[in-house]
Design a binder for these strands. Sequence first.
DNA 1: GGCGTAATAT
DNA 2: GATATTACGC
Length: 605
Amino acid sequence: MTVEEIRGGDNEIDRFPIGMRVLAVDDNPTCLKLLDGLLRKCQYQVTTTNQAIKALNMLRENRNRFDLVISDVYMPDMDGFKLLELVGLEMDLPVIMLSGNGDRNLVMKGITHGACDYLVKPVRLEEIRNIWQHVIRRKVESKSKNNREKSDQGIEGGDQNEKLNRKRKDEDEEEENGNESDDPTAKKKPRVVWSIDLHRKFVAAINQLGIEKAVPKRILDLMNVDGLTRENVASHLQKYRLYLKRISHQANMVVAFGGNNDASSYMRMSPLDGLADFRTLSCSGRLPNATYAPAGMLGRLNSATGVALHSLTAPPLVQPNHTQTKLQPGPVVSSNHQNMNLFQGIPPFELDQLQYSNKPNTHLTDYNSIEESQIFTGTNLADFNSINEPRMFRGSSTFTDPISVLASQAGVKLTSTGTESLNLLSTTSGFLDQNGNQPPSFPSNLLPVGESYSYPAAVNGGFSSNITTTAAVPVEAHGGGLVGHIVQNVNQSLSNQKGGPCSKQDYSQYSQNAFTTLASSALADYGGSSGPVSHSRPNGVGSTLVQTEHTKLQSGFVSSNGYGSLDDIIPGMLKREQNTTMQMNGEFGYDAYMVPGRVYGDESK
DNA sequence: GGCGTAATAT
DNA sequence: GATATTACGC
Protein backbone atom coordinates (compact mmCIF):
# COMPACT_ATOMS: atom_id res chain seq x y z
CA MET A 1 0.00 0.00 0.00
CA THR A 2 1.25 3.36 -0.86
CA VAL A 3 0.61 6.46 1.06
CA GLU A 4 -1.36 7.80 -1.80
CA GLU A 5 -3.77 5.01 -1.46
CA ILE A 6 -4.54 5.98 2.02
CA ARG A 7 -5.86 9.28 1.04
CA GLY A 8 -6.24 9.01 -2.63
CA GLY A 9 -3.07 10.81 -3.38
CA ASP A 10 -3.72 13.65 -1.08
CA ASN A 11 -0.69 15.78 -0.57
CA GLU A 12 -1.26 15.89 3.09
CA ILE A 13 -0.76 12.23 3.37
CA ASP A 14 2.77 12.73 4.42
CA ARG A 15 1.60 14.16 7.62
CA PHE A 16 -1.04 11.60 8.27
CA PRO A 17 -2.83 11.36 10.55
CA ILE A 18 -2.68 15.09 10.79
CA GLY A 19 -5.57 16.37 8.84
CA MET A 20 -7.36 13.10 8.95
CA ARG A 21 -10.93 13.85 8.17
CA VAL A 22 -13.16 12.81 10.99
CA LEU A 23 -16.87 13.06 11.13
CA ALA A 24 -18.05 13.27 14.69
CA VAL A 25 -21.64 12.54 15.49
CA ASP A 26 -23.26 13.06 18.83
CA ASP A 27 -26.63 14.40 19.66
CA ASN A 28 -25.40 15.77 22.91
CA PRO A 29 -23.91 19.16 22.15
CA THR A 30 -21.66 19.06 25.14
CA CYS A 31 -20.26 15.71 24.27
CA LEU A 32 -19.92 16.77 20.72
CA LYS A 33 -18.04 19.83 21.69
CA LEU A 34 -15.73 17.88 23.88
CA LEU A 35 -15.15 15.35 21.21
CA ASP A 36 -14.55 18.04 18.69
CA GLY A 37 -11.98 19.56 20.95
CA LEU A 38 -10.15 16.34 21.43
CA LEU A 39 -10.14 15.59 17.77
CA ARG A 40 -8.83 18.99 16.95
CA LYS A 41 -6.13 18.64 19.51
CA CYS A 42 -4.94 15.73 17.49
CA GLN A 43 -4.98 17.98 14.48
CA TYR A 44 -7.63 16.05 12.75
CA GLN A 45 -9.87 17.79 10.36
CA VAL A 46 -13.15 17.61 12.18
CA THR A 47 -16.68 17.87 11.01
CA THR A 48 -19.38 17.62 13.59
CA THR A 49 -23.05 17.03 13.51
CA ASN A 50 -25.58 16.33 16.16
CA GLN A 51 -27.76 14.25 13.92
CA ALA A 52 -26.95 10.87 12.67
CA ILE A 53 -29.09 11.38 9.64
CA LYS A 54 -27.20 14.48 8.74
CA ALA A 55 -24.05 12.55 9.16
CA LEU A 56 -25.29 9.90 6.88
CA ASN A 57 -26.29 12.42 4.31
CA MET A 58 -22.91 14.01 4.44
CA LEU A 59 -21.29 10.69 4.00
CA ARG A 60 -23.50 9.82 1.13
CA GLU A 61 -22.97 13.08 -0.59
CA ASN A 62 -19.34 12.39 -0.82
CA ARG A 63 -18.07 9.15 0.45
CA ASN A 64 -14.55 10.29 0.08
CA ARG A 65 -15.01 13.26 2.24
CA PHE A 66 -14.14 11.52 5.47
CA ASP A 67 -11.62 9.07 6.64
CA LEU A 68 -13.30 8.01 9.78
CA VAL A 69 -16.56 8.34 11.60
CA ILE A 70 -16.89 8.57 15.31
CA SER A 71 -20.39 8.34 16.52
CA ASP A 72 -22.35 8.24 19.67
CA VAL A 73 -24.40 5.15 20.18
CA TYR A 74 -27.62 6.66 21.33
CA MET A 75 -29.09 9.35 19.23
CA PRO A 76 -32.65 10.32 18.73
CA ASP A 77 -32.83 10.51 15.03
CA MET A 78 -30.96 7.40 14.27
CA ASP A 79 -29.35 4.88 16.43
CA GLY A 80 -25.62 5.10 16.24
CA PHE A 81 -25.46 1.50 15.39
CA LYS A 82 -27.75 1.94 12.52
CA LEU A 83 -25.44 4.59 11.33
CA LEU A 84 -22.62 2.20 11.86
CA GLU A 85 -24.37 -0.37 9.85
CA LEU A 86 -25.08 1.93 7.00
CA VAL A 87 -21.66 3.36 6.89
CA GLY A 88 -20.18 -0.07 6.91
CA LEU A 89 -22.49 -1.10 4.22
CA GLU A 90 -22.26 1.83 1.97
CA MET A 91 -18.86 3.30 2.33
CA ASP A 92 -16.69 0.99 4.25
CA LEU A 93 -15.40 3.68 6.50
CA PRO A 94 -14.05 2.86 9.91
CA VAL A 95 -16.55 3.76 12.53
CA ILE A 96 -15.79 4.26 16.16
CA MET A 97 -18.63 4.05 18.54
CA LEU A 98 -18.92 6.24 21.55
CA SER A 99 -21.01 5.54 24.55
CA GLY A 100 -21.25 6.37 28.14
CA ASN A 101 -22.09 2.80 28.72
CA GLY A 102 -19.06 0.62 28.69
CA ASP A 103 -20.86 -2.54 29.46
CA ARG A 104 -18.98 -5.44 28.11
CA ASN A 105 -21.89 -6.72 26.13
CA LEU A 106 -22.47 -3.39 24.57
CA VAL A 107 -18.90 -3.10 23.58
CA MET A 108 -19.05 -6.57 22.24
CA LYS A 109 -22.07 -5.78 20.23
CA GLY A 110 -20.55 -2.67 18.95
CA ILE A 111 -17.53 -4.46 17.71
CA THR A 112 -19.46 -7.34 16.32
CA HIS A 113 -21.62 -4.92 14.48
CA GLY A 114 -18.71 -3.55 12.67
CA ALA A 115 -17.34 -0.83 14.81
CA CYS A 116 -13.62 -0.73 14.59
CA ASP A 117 -13.45 0.58 18.10
CA TYR A 118 -15.69 1.33 20.98
CA LEU A 119 -14.78 4.17 23.23
CA VAL A 120 -16.39 4.78 26.54
CA LYS A 121 -17.08 8.31 27.55
CA PRO A 122 -15.45 10.33 28.72
CA VAL A 123 -13.05 9.78 25.95
CA ARG A 124 -9.46 10.46 26.65
CA LEU A 125 -7.12 12.28 24.39
CA GLU A 126 -4.84 9.29 24.22
CA GLU A 127 -7.60 7.27 22.75
CA ILE A 128 -8.39 9.86 20.18
CA ARG A 129 -4.77 10.14 19.28
CA ASN A 130 -4.73 6.57 18.17
CA ILE A 131 -7.86 6.34 16.19
CA TRP A 132 -6.07 7.01 12.96
CA GLN A 133 -4.77 3.47 13.02
CA HIS A 134 -8.23 2.28 12.18
CA VAL A 135 -8.11 4.18 8.96
CA ILE A 136 -4.91 2.53 8.00
CA ARG A 137 -6.11 -0.84 9.05
CA ARG A 138 -9.22 -0.50 7.01
CA LYS A 139 -7.27 0.41 3.98
CA VAL A 140 -4.96 -2.50 4.38
CA GLU A 141 -7.76 -4.94 4.89
CA SER A 142 -9.65 -3.57 2.00
CA LYS A 143 -6.69 -3.91 -0.21
CA SER A 144 -5.89 -7.42 0.84
CA LYS A 145 -9.45 -8.40 0.36
CA ASN A 146 -9.41 -7.05 -3.13
CA ASN A 147 -6.31 -8.99 -3.85
CA ARG A 148 -7.90 -12.14 -2.65
CA GLU A 149 -10.85 -11.57 -4.84
CA LYS A 150 -8.73 -10.97 -7.83
CA SER A 151 -6.81 -14.12 -7.24
CA ASP A 152 -9.93 -16.19 -7.04
CA GLN A 153 -11.11 -17.48 -10.30
CA GLY A 154 -13.65 -19.64 -11.83
CA ILE A 155 -17.17 -20.45 -11.07
CA GLU A 156 -16.37 -23.64 -9.33
CA GLY A 157 -14.15 -24.63 -6.53
CA GLY A 158 -13.61 -23.15 -3.18
CA ASP A 159 -15.47 -23.68 -0.02
CA GLN A 160 -18.68 -22.44 -1.36
CA ASN A 161 -18.91 -25.34 -3.63
CA GLU A 162 -17.08 -27.72 -1.50
CA LYS A 163 -20.07 -29.87 -0.87
CA LEU A 164 -21.02 -29.81 -4.44
CA ASN A 165 -17.60 -30.67 -5.61
CA ARG A 166 -17.20 -33.39 -3.14
CA LYS A 167 -20.46 -34.84 -4.17
CA ARG A 168 -19.52 -34.76 -7.76
CA LYS A 169 -16.23 -36.29 -7.00
CA ASP A 170 -17.90 -39.09 -5.16
CA GLU A 171 -20.22 -39.61 -8.01
CA ASP A 172 -17.38 -39.71 -10.42
CA GLU A 173 -15.66 -42.32 -8.39
CA GLU A 174 -18.73 -44.41 -8.33
CA GLU A 175 -19.12 -44.02 -11.98
CA GLU A 176 -15.62 -45.10 -12.56
CA ASN A 177 -16.44 -48.28 -10.84
CA GLY A 178 -19.58 -48.90 -12.72
CA ASN A 179 -21.00 -46.60 -15.27
CA GLU A 180 -18.46 -44.95 -17.47
CA SER A 181 -20.66 -43.20 -19.93
CA ASP A 182 -21.07 -40.05 -18.03
CA ASP A 183 -19.13 -37.49 -19.91
CA PRO A 184 -22.19 -35.36 -20.36
CA THR A 185 -22.43 -35.07 -16.63
CA ALA A 186 -18.90 -33.97 -16.34
CA LYS A 187 -19.48 -31.28 -18.85
CA LYS A 188 -22.61 -30.21 -17.25
CA LYS A 189 -22.77 -26.64 -16.30
CA PRO A 190 -21.96 -26.10 -12.67
CA ARG A 191 -24.60 -24.58 -10.59
CA VAL A 192 -24.08 -21.04 -9.74
CA VAL A 193 -23.86 -20.34 -6.12
CA TRP A 194 -25.39 -17.04 -5.43
CA SER A 195 -23.02 -15.88 -2.84
CA ILE A 196 -23.56 -12.75 -0.93
CA ASP A 197 -21.27 -10.78 -3.10
CA LEU A 198 -22.83 -12.14 -6.17
CA HIS A 199 -26.25 -11.38 -4.93
CA ARG A 200 -25.17 -7.93 -3.96
CA LYS A 201 -23.94 -7.32 -7.39
CA PHE A 202 -27.16 -8.60 -8.68
CA VAL A 203 -29.24 -6.28 -6.61
CA ALA A 204 -26.88 -3.43 -7.21
CA ALA A 205 -27.34 -3.96 -10.88
CA ILE A 206 -31.06 -3.93 -10.48
CA ASN A 207 -30.89 -0.79 -8.48
CA GLN A 208 -28.73 0.80 -11.01
CA LEU A 209 -30.91 -0.14 -13.89
CA GLY A 210 -34.08 0.60 -12.16
CA ILE A 211 -36.07 -2.41 -11.48
CA GLU A 212 -38.32 -1.97 -14.43
CA LYS A 213 -35.39 -2.12 -16.76
CA ALA A 214 -33.68 -4.86 -14.95
CA VAL A 215 -33.70 -7.71 -17.36
CA PRO A 216 -31.31 -10.58 -17.27
CA LYS A 217 -29.03 -9.40 -19.96
CA ARG A 218 -28.61 -5.95 -18.61
CA ILE A 219 -28.15 -7.23 -15.15
CA LEU A 220 -25.58 -9.62 -16.38
CA ASP A 221 -23.72 -6.85 -18.10
CA LEU A 222 -23.68 -4.73 -15.05
CA MET A 223 -22.68 -7.50 -12.79
CA ASN A 224 -19.78 -8.27 -14.96
CA VAL A 225 -19.10 -11.61 -13.44
CA ASP A 226 -17.10 -14.17 -15.24
CA GLY A 227 -18.82 -17.39 -15.86
CA LEU A 228 -22.21 -16.11 -15.07
CA THR A 229 -24.73 -16.54 -17.80
CA ARG A 230 -27.82 -14.72 -18.71
CA GLU A 231 -29.75 -17.80 -17.81
CA ASN A 232 -28.27 -17.79 -14.37
CA VAL A 233 -29.29 -14.25 -13.91
CA ALA A 234 -32.71 -14.89 -15.30
CA SER A 235 -33.21 -17.66 -12.90
CA HIS A 236 -32.10 -15.60 -10.00
CA LEU A 237 -34.22 -12.76 -11.17
CA GLN A 238 -37.15 -15.04 -11.31
CA LYS A 239 -36.65 -15.98 -7.77
CA TYR A 240 -36.05 -12.44 -6.81
CA ARG A 241 -39.28 -11.33 -8.32
CA LEU A 242 -41.14 -13.99 -6.56
CA TYR A 243 -39.59 -12.75 -3.45
CA LEU A 244 -40.62 -9.19 -4.07
CA LYS A 245 -44.02 -10.35 -4.89
CA ARG A 246 -44.31 -12.30 -1.78
CA ILE A 247 -43.15 -9.66 0.55
CA SER A 248 -45.45 -7.13 -0.92
CA HIS A 249 -48.24 -9.54 -0.70
CA GLN A 250 -47.57 -10.33 2.84
CA ALA A 251 -47.36 -6.75 3.75
CA ASN A 252 -50.63 -6.08 2.12
CA MET A 253 -52.23 -8.95 3.78
CA VAL A 254 -51.54 -7.38 7.03
CA VAL A 255 -52.75 -4.08 5.87
CA ALA A 256 -55.89 -5.46 4.52
CA PHE A 257 -56.88 -7.09 7.68
CA GLY A 258 -55.12 -5.20 10.30
CA GLY A 259 -54.54 -1.84 8.83
CA ASN A 260 -56.19 0.27 11.38
CA ASN A 261 -55.29 1.95 14.54
CA ASP A 262 -56.84 -0.61 16.69
CA ALA A 263 -53.81 -2.36 17.80
CA SER A 264 -55.82 -4.85 19.66
CA SER A 265 -57.10 -6.23 16.45
CA TYR A 266 -53.65 -7.48 15.79
CA MET A 267 -53.47 -9.09 19.07
CA ARG A 268 -56.45 -11.15 18.31
CA MET A 269 -54.92 -12.54 15.28
CA SER A 270 -53.62 -15.97 15.25
CA PRO A 271 -50.26 -16.52 13.75
CA LEU A 272 -49.74 -16.40 10.12
CA ASP A 273 -49.28 -19.69 8.65
CA GLY A 274 -46.15 -18.43 7.21
CA LEU A 275 -45.74 -18.68 3.56
CA ALA A 276 -47.75 -16.72 1.19
CA ASP A 277 -47.22 -18.79 -1.78
CA PHE A 278 -47.60 -16.67 -4.79
CA ARG A 279 -47.22 -19.49 -7.07
CA THR A 280 -50.61 -20.61 -6.07
CA LEU A 281 -52.18 -17.26 -6.33
CA SER A 282 -54.74 -17.06 -8.97
CA CYS A 283 -55.51 -14.04 -10.94
CA SER A 284 -58.94 -13.89 -9.56
CA GLY A 285 -57.68 -14.07 -6.10
CA ARG A 286 -57.94 -10.43 -5.59
CA LEU A 287 -56.98 -9.29 -2.26
CA PRO A 288 -59.48 -7.51 -0.19
CA ASN A 289 -57.11 -4.77 0.54
CA ALA A 290 -57.84 -2.83 -2.52
CA THR A 291 -59.64 -0.21 -0.61
CA TYR A 292 -56.47 0.56 1.17
CA ALA A 293 -54.70 1.08 -2.01
CA PRO A 294 -56.56 3.68 -3.92
CA ALA A 295 -55.28 4.50 -7.30
CA GLY A 296 -54.10 7.79 -6.06
CA MET A 297 -51.89 6.33 -3.53
CA LEU A 298 -49.16 5.53 -5.84
CA GLY A 299 -49.32 8.96 -7.22
CA ARG A 300 -49.01 10.42 -3.84
CA LEU A 301 -46.17 8.22 -3.14
CA ASN A 302 -44.53 9.44 -6.20
CA SER A 303 -45.06 13.03 -5.56
CA ALA A 304 -44.12 12.84 -2.00
CA THR A 305 -40.98 11.02 -2.66
CA GLY A 306 -39.98 12.06 -6.02
CA VAL A 307 -36.39 12.22 -5.18
CA ALA A 308 -36.40 9.14 -3.17
CA LEU A 309 -38.01 7.06 -5.74
CA HIS A 310 -35.62 8.15 -8.29
CA SER A 311 -33.07 6.43 -6.30
CA LEU A 312 -34.44 3.28 -7.64
CA THR A 313 -32.95 4.06 -10.90
CA ALA A 314 -30.14 6.21 -9.79
CA PRO A 315 -26.72 4.80 -10.07
CA PRO A 316 -25.66 3.23 -6.89
CA LEU A 317 -22.99 5.06 -5.10
CA VAL A 318 -20.60 2.29 -4.75
CA GLN A 319 -21.18 0.92 -8.01
CA PRO A 320 -18.79 -0.12 -9.98
CA ASN A 321 -15.84 0.70 -11.24
CA HIS A 322 -17.03 -2.22 -13.25
CA THR A 323 -14.02 -4.14 -12.50
CA GLN A 324 -14.22 -7.59 -13.67
CA THR A 325 -15.39 -9.86 -11.02
CA LYS A 326 -15.18 -13.52 -11.02
CA LEU A 327 -17.42 -15.85 -9.27
CA GLN A 328 -15.95 -16.46 -5.95
CA PRO A 329 -14.80 -19.91 -5.35
CA GLY A 330 -12.80 -19.19 -2.31
CA PRO A 331 -13.76 -19.54 1.27
CA VAL A 332 -15.94 -16.79 2.38
CA VAL A 333 -14.94 -16.82 5.92
CA SER A 334 -11.44 -16.96 6.99
CA SER A 335 -11.57 -15.57 10.44
CA ASN A 336 -13.95 -14.11 12.84
CA HIS A 337 -12.45 -10.81 12.42
CA GLN A 338 -12.93 -10.84 8.77
CA ASN A 339 -16.44 -11.82 9.15
CA MET A 340 -17.14 -8.33 10.07
CA ASN A 341 -16.01 -7.07 6.80
CA LEU A 342 -16.85 -9.86 4.57
CA PHE A 343 -20.26 -10.10 5.93
CA GLN A 344 -21.04 -6.61 6.53
CA GLY A 345 -24.14 -7.35 4.66
CA ILE A 346 -25.01 -10.06 7.00
CA PRO A 347 -26.67 -9.48 10.21
CA PRO A 348 -24.13 -9.80 12.87
CA PHE A 349 -25.28 -11.69 15.80
CA GLU A 350 -24.75 -11.25 19.34
CA LEU A 351 -21.87 -13.20 20.45
CA ASP A 352 -23.68 -14.89 23.18
CA GLN A 353 -26.02 -16.23 20.63
CA LEU A 354 -23.54 -17.03 18.07
CA GLN A 355 -22.31 -20.41 17.48
CA TYR A 356 -19.09 -19.89 15.84
CA SER A 357 -19.05 -22.46 13.24
CA ASN A 358 -16.10 -23.59 11.36
CA LYS A 359 -17.94 -25.70 9.02
CA PRO A 360 -17.18 -24.89 5.49
CA ASN A 361 -19.45 -22.70 3.61
CA THR A 362 -21.70 -24.42 1.35
CA HIS A 363 -24.01 -22.20 -0.53
CA LEU A 364 -24.33 -18.61 0.20
CA THR A 365 -27.63 -18.15 -1.31
CA ASP A 366 -30.14 -19.53 0.96
CA TYR A 367 -31.99 -17.39 3.34
CA ASN A 368 -34.06 -20.35 3.92
CA SER A 369 -31.66 -22.37 5.83
CA ILE A 370 -30.00 -19.66 7.69
CA GLU A 371 -29.13 -20.23 11.20
CA GLU A 372 -27.14 -18.06 13.43
CA SER A 373 -23.98 -19.91 12.98
CA GLN A 374 -24.49 -20.13 9.34
CA ILE A 375 -25.09 -16.52 8.99
CA PHE A 376 -21.99 -15.67 10.74
CA THR A 377 -19.97 -18.03 8.76
CA GLY A 378 -21.50 -17.03 5.58
CA THR A 379 -23.45 -20.09 4.90
CA ASN A 380 -26.62 -19.86 2.99
CA LEU A 381 -27.45 -16.32 2.58
CA ALA A 382 -29.41 -15.22 -0.28
CA ASP A 383 -32.57 -16.94 -0.85
CA PHE A 384 -35.61 -14.85 -1.11
CA ASN A 385 -38.00 -17.65 -1.33
CA SER A 386 -38.12 -18.68 2.19
CA ILE A 387 -37.97 -15.46 3.94
CA ASN A 388 -40.55 -16.59 6.32
CA GLU A 389 -38.43 -19.08 7.98
CA PRO A 390 -38.59 -18.17 11.57
CA ARG A 391 -35.22 -19.40 12.34
CA MET A 392 -33.73 -17.06 9.96
CA PHE A 393 -32.96 -14.32 12.37
CA ARG A 394 -33.83 -16.11 15.40
CA GLY A 395 -32.45 -14.67 18.48
CA SER A 396 -30.63 -12.00 16.76
CA SER A 397 -32.78 -9.04 17.15
CA THR A 398 -31.96 -7.15 20.16
CA PHE A 399 -31.61 -3.61 19.23
CA THR A 400 -33.59 -0.57 19.74
CA ASP A 401 -34.22 1.78 16.98
CA PRO A 402 -36.30 4.78 16.24
CA ILE A 403 -39.31 2.64 16.00
CA SER A 404 -38.85 1.76 19.55
CA VAL A 405 -38.85 5.34 20.33
CA LEU A 406 -42.01 5.89 18.51
CA ALA A 407 -43.63 2.91 19.91
CA SER A 408 -42.77 4.21 23.28
CA GLN A 409 -44.15 7.50 22.43
CA ALA A 410 -47.29 5.93 21.25
CA GLY A 411 -47.84 4.69 24.69
CA VAL A 412 -46.48 1.34 24.04
CA LYS A 413 -44.67 -0.30 26.76
CA LEU A 414 -41.26 -1.57 26.33
CA THR A 415 -40.10 -4.09 28.73
CA SER A 416 -36.91 -2.33 29.25
CA THR A 417 -36.46 0.42 31.69
CA GLY A 418 -32.86 0.93 30.96
CA THR A 419 -31.36 4.29 30.59
CA GLU A 420 -31.21 3.90 26.92
CA SER A 421 -34.89 3.61 26.75
CA LEU A 422 -35.24 6.63 28.87
CA ASN A 423 -33.00 8.51 26.61
CA LEU A 424 -34.98 7.47 23.68
CA LEU A 425 -38.17 8.44 25.26
CA SER A 426 -36.87 11.77 26.23
CA THR A 427 -35.96 12.65 22.76
CA THR A 428 -38.89 11.55 20.82
CA SER A 429 -40.53 14.85 20.42
CA GLY A 430 -37.63 16.29 18.59
CA PHE A 431 -37.61 13.40 16.33
CA LEU A 432 -41.18 13.73 15.50
CA ASP A 433 -40.89 17.34 14.78
CA GLN A 434 -38.17 16.68 12.42
CA ASN A 435 -39.87 13.97 10.55
CA GLY A 436 -43.34 15.10 10.83
CA ASN A 437 -42.92 18.65 9.81
CA GLN A 438 -39.84 18.87 7.85
CA PRO A 439 -38.62 15.65 6.56
CA PRO A 440 -35.14 15.80 5.26
CA SER A 441 -34.73 15.24 1.66
CA PHE A 442 -34.37 11.75 0.53
CA PRO A 443 -30.87 11.09 -0.58
CA SER A 444 -30.69 10.19 -4.14
CA ASN A 445 -28.07 7.71 -3.41
CA LEU A 446 -30.20 5.76 -1.14
CA LEU A 447 -29.56 2.60 -2.92
CA PRO A 448 -25.96 1.98 -3.18
CA VAL A 449 -24.49 -1.31 -3.70
CA GLY A 450 -25.55 -3.92 -1.35
CA GLU A 451 -29.20 -3.23 -1.67
CA SER A 452 -29.28 -0.48 0.74
CA TYR A 453 -32.82 0.42 0.87
CA SER A 454 -31.75 1.32 4.24
CA TYR A 455 -34.45 2.12 6.53
CA PRO A 456 -33.06 5.15 8.22
CA ALA A 457 -32.68 6.89 4.99
CA ALA A 458 -36.05 5.85 4.00
CA VAL A 459 -37.31 7.35 7.13
CA ASN A 460 -36.64 10.64 5.64
CA GLY A 461 -38.30 9.99 2.46
CA GLY A 462 -41.07 12.33 3.24
CA PHE A 463 -43.66 9.73 2.77
CA SER A 464 -45.04 9.97 6.11
CA SER A 465 -47.92 12.29 5.92
CA ASN A 466 -49.10 11.25 2.56
CA ILE A 467 -49.19 7.59 2.53
CA THR A 468 -50.68 6.22 5.52
CA THR A 469 -54.31 5.91 5.95
CA THR A 470 -54.37 3.69 8.89
CA ALA A 471 -51.35 3.80 11.02
CA ALA A 472 -50.63 6.17 13.76
CA VAL A 473 -48.50 9.04 12.74
CA PRO A 474 -45.35 8.32 14.60
CA VAL A 475 -44.87 5.00 13.12
CA GLU A 476 -45.92 6.10 9.75
CA ALA A 477 -43.19 8.54 9.69
CA HIS A 478 -40.82 5.74 9.93
CA GLY A 479 -42.38 2.92 8.18
CA GLY A 480 -43.51 4.90 5.26
CA GLY A 481 -40.19 5.56 3.81
CA LEU A 482 -38.98 2.11 3.79
CA VAL A 483 -41.98 0.26 2.82
CA GLY A 484 -43.17 2.87 0.51
CA HIS A 485 -39.92 2.53 -1.13
CA ILE A 486 -40.26 -1.13 -1.36
CA VAL A 487 -43.74 -0.89 -2.55
CA GLN A 488 -42.84 1.58 -5.12
CA ASN A 489 -40.03 -0.53 -6.20
CA VAL A 490 -42.17 -3.50 -6.59
CA ASN A 491 -44.86 -1.56 -8.29
CA GLN A 492 -42.54 -0.04 -10.73
CA SER A 493 -41.04 -3.29 -11.39
CA LEU A 494 -44.08 -5.19 -12.04
CA SER A 495 -46.71 -2.93 -13.29
CA ASN A 496 -44.78 -1.90 -16.29
CA GLN A 497 -44.12 -5.27 -17.60
CA LYS A 498 -45.78 -7.06 -20.29
CA GLY A 499 -47.19 -10.40 -19.73
CA GLY A 500 -50.32 -12.09 -18.71
CA PRO A 501 -52.86 -10.46 -16.52
CA CYS A 502 -51.84 -12.66 -13.76
CA SER A 503 -48.20 -12.51 -13.98
CA LYS A 504 -47.37 -8.94 -13.50
CA GLN A 505 -50.15 -6.92 -12.14
CA ASP A 506 -50.25 -8.87 -9.02
CA TYR A 507 -47.27 -7.13 -7.75
CA SER A 508 -48.59 -3.68 -7.59
CA GLN A 509 -51.77 -4.76 -6.16
CA TYR A 510 -50.15 -6.62 -3.43
CA SER A 511 -47.70 -4.02 -2.64
CA GLN A 512 -49.72 -0.93 -2.39
CA ASN A 513 -50.05 -0.83 1.26
CA ALA A 514 -47.02 -2.45 2.49
CA PHE A 515 -46.04 0.65 4.19
CA THR A 516 -49.19 1.02 6.09
CA THR A 517 -48.98 -2.50 7.07
CA LEU A 518 -45.67 -2.22 8.57
CA ALA A 519 -46.29 0.97 10.27
CA SER A 520 -49.44 -0.22 11.80
CA SER A 521 -48.05 -3.41 12.92
CA ALA A 522 -45.30 -1.74 14.74
CA LEU A 523 -47.90 -0.31 16.94
CA ALA A 524 -49.70 -3.50 17.05
CA ASP A 525 -46.71 -5.23 18.29
CA TYR A 526 -46.66 -3.19 21.36
CA GLY A 527 -50.09 -1.87 21.79
CA GLY A 528 -51.83 -2.93 24.88
CA SER A 529 -49.30 -5.39 25.90
CA SER A 530 -46.26 -5.06 27.96
CA GLY A 531 -45.18 -8.52 27.30
CA PRO A 532 -44.81 -10.86 24.45
CA VAL A 533 -47.96 -12.01 22.91
CA SER A 534 -48.26 -15.64 22.93
CA HIS A 535 -49.21 -17.03 19.63
CA SER A 536 -48.94 -20.47 18.49
CA ARG A 537 -46.17 -21.04 16.09
CA PRO A 538 -46.74 -22.98 13.01
CA ASN A 539 -43.19 -23.92 12.96
CA GLY A 540 -42.70 -24.17 16.61
CA VAL A 541 -39.79 -21.87 16.56
CA GLY A 542 -38.78 -18.94 18.50
CA SER A 543 -41.19 -18.83 21.32
CA THR A 544 -38.50 -19.13 23.83
CA LEU A 545 -36.86 -16.13 22.43
CA VAL A 546 -39.56 -13.77 23.21
CA GLN A 547 -38.57 -12.93 26.65
CA THR A 548 -34.98 -12.76 25.87
CA GLU A 549 -35.39 -10.42 23.07
CA HIS A 550 -37.68 -8.23 24.95
CA THR A 551 -35.24 -7.93 27.66
CA LYS A 552 -32.65 -6.93 25.25
CA LEU A 553 -34.55 -4.09 23.86
CA GLN A 554 -32.74 -1.87 26.18
CA SER A 555 -29.47 -2.54 24.59
CA GLY A 556 -29.92 0.33 22.30
CA PHE A 557 -28.31 -1.21 19.36
CA VAL A 558 -29.42 -1.26 15.92
CA SER A 559 -28.49 -4.18 14.00
CA SER A 560 -25.85 -4.00 11.50
CA ASN A 561 -26.54 -5.97 8.53
CA GLY A 562 -25.15 -5.78 5.27
CA TYR A 563 -28.15 -5.59 3.28
CA GLY A 564 -30.31 -3.14 5.04
CA SER A 565 -32.53 -3.42 2.15
CA LEU A 566 -35.52 -4.97 0.81
CA ASP A 567 -33.70 -8.16 0.93
CA ASP A 568 -32.78 -7.71 4.45
CA ILE A 569 -35.48 -5.86 6.05
CA ILE A 570 -38.35 -7.66 4.64
CA PRO A 571 -37.21 -11.07 5.55
CA GLY A 572 -36.96 -9.82 9.01
CA MET A 573 -40.39 -8.45 8.87
CA LEU A 574 -41.74 -11.63 7.62
CA LYS A 575 -39.94 -13.54 10.16
CA ARG A 576 -41.67 -11.60 12.77
CA GLU A 577 -44.89 -12.66 11.34
CA GLN A 578 -44.19 -16.11 12.35
CA ASN A 579 -42.16 -15.48 15.33
CA THR A 580 -44.77 -13.38 16.91
CA THR A 581 -41.96 -12.10 18.89
CA MET A 582 -42.67 -8.59 19.79
CA GLN A 583 -39.37 -7.19 19.11
CA MET A 584 -39.21 -3.71 18.04
CA ASN A 585 -36.36 -4.31 15.83
CA GLY A 586 -34.42 -7.16 14.64
CA GLU A 587 -31.36 -8.22 13.06
CA PHE A 588 -32.38 -6.38 10.06
CA GLY A 589 -32.89 -3.33 12.01
CA TYR A 590 -36.38 -2.56 11.16
CA ASP A 591 -38.02 -5.77 10.77
CA ALA A 592 -40.47 -5.30 13.49
CA TYR A 593 -43.19 -3.91 11.44
CA MET A 594 -44.95 -6.98 10.53
CA VAL A 595 -47.95 -7.94 12.43
CA PRO A 596 -47.54 -11.11 14.25
CA GLY A 597 -50.52 -13.15 13.65
CA ARG A 598 -52.49 -14.71 11.01
CA VAL A 599 -54.10 -12.49 8.55
CA TYR A 600 -57.58 -13.58 8.30
CA GLY A 601 -59.24 -13.67 5.04
CA ASP A 602 -56.26 -14.53 3.03
CA GLU A 603 -58.32 -16.31 0.53
CA SER A 604 -55.76 -16.07 -2.09
CA LYS A 605 -54.20 -19.21 -0.99
C1' DG B 1 -32.09 -13.32 -29.44
C1' DG B 2 -34.04 -12.23 -25.26
C1' DC B 3 -37.56 -12.47 -21.97
C1' DG B 4 -40.68 -14.63 -18.53
C1' DT B 5 -42.70 -18.68 -16.98
C1' DA B 6 -43.06 -23.34 -15.97
C1' DA B 7 -41.20 -27.82 -15.90
C1' DT B 8 -37.46 -30.47 -14.63
C1' DA B 9 -33.18 -31.83 -12.45
C1' DT B 10 -30.38 -31.74 -8.54
C1' DG C 1 -38.63 -29.40 -0.18
C1' DA C 2 -36.20 -25.90 -2.25
C1' DT C 3 -33.10 -24.45 -5.44
C1' DA C 4 -30.85 -23.97 -9.96
C1' DT C 5 -31.25 -25.36 -14.59
C1' DT C 6 -33.58 -26.16 -18.68
C1' DA C 7 -37.39 -26.01 -21.88
C1' DC C 8 -40.50 -23.45 -24.22
C1' DG C 9 -43.71 -20.02 -25.89
C1' DC C 10 -44.00 -15.24 -26.75
